[in-house]
Design a protein around this nucleic acid. Structure first.
Lengths: 122, 122
DNA sequence: GGGTGTTGTTTACAAACGTAATTGGATGCT
DNA sequence: AGCATCCAATTACGTTTGTAAACAACACCC
């Protein structure tokens, strides 16, 4: 089953560092998202049910670890958008951002380097 | 309010050609999506409520036209993904696809051309 | 050993979504 | 005028999502 947007926020915390307790996650997300304890607990349980995280007992509490990798999640999301909106092709996506003036100097430089490196792998 | 995924499928039909009647839309989506008449009608009504399409009477029926442009929709969706997953920057997105081997020869060629043209506008 | 705190589990509830059936109003046929 | 037909509008219903409160289990202190 799909990881929802709010759930993904919790995943980000775990991708950044794991394993972590619910309390630690709340400490980070409470302020940032204005979430209550119950909210984080619920999201963690849904993620457990979806097999996106694992819980390992640590005394009175649990420590949570991602089972779904960020790479995999990002791939799914990105491919979804690419397929739905750009016919599955990357160049039109970039062209879109270019037209929207969303390409920074830095982006352009990095893209050139990337393409260069692709060439170099002969 | 946000246009949902199923609603976006209807929008695609209208972006491709408009104005169109509910019947025409159903003729296209019924087979492709396995949707019943009521489904398409409901989606059209939700899109009306969200001001994403307009309806103009044509005798006994309505003709629907997009109010939300595809450009705008694509921009919102793309920016959302970019911000959520790639820190709002394009180069990491492309790098991701590159790592996933999702860059075709054609993509690479087009990207080079695009970057070239960006340079040319001095 | 009974209250108190701490952490996890279950339940709640409104909004959005996917999917559709039902109802209702206008049009036309007989 | 009465009935069938064709659309659109309303209502329905199960699921997912966002957000959280209520409840339960266990450990600790006095």
């Amino acid at each position: 089953m799909a990881v929802s947007e709010a759930e993904a926020v919790v995943m980000e915390v775990l991708w950044h560092q794991a394993p972590r307790s619910a309390e630690e996650i709340l400490a980070e997300l409470g302020p940032r998202q204005g979430w209550q304890e119950g909210t984080v607990k619920s999201l963690l349980n849904r993620l457990l049910k979806k097999k996106a995280v694992a819980a390992e007992r640590d005394g009175r509490r649990y420590l949570y670890t991602p089972l779904l990798s960020r790479e995999k999640y990002v791939s799914q999301e990105s491919k979804g958008l690419l397929d739905r909106l750009f016919g599955g092709r990357v160049a039109p996506l970039v062209a879109h951002f270019s037209e929207q003036r969303k390409l920074s100097k830095r982006d352009v430089a990095e893209l050139k380097k990337l393409l260069q490196e692709l060439d170099d792998e002969h």
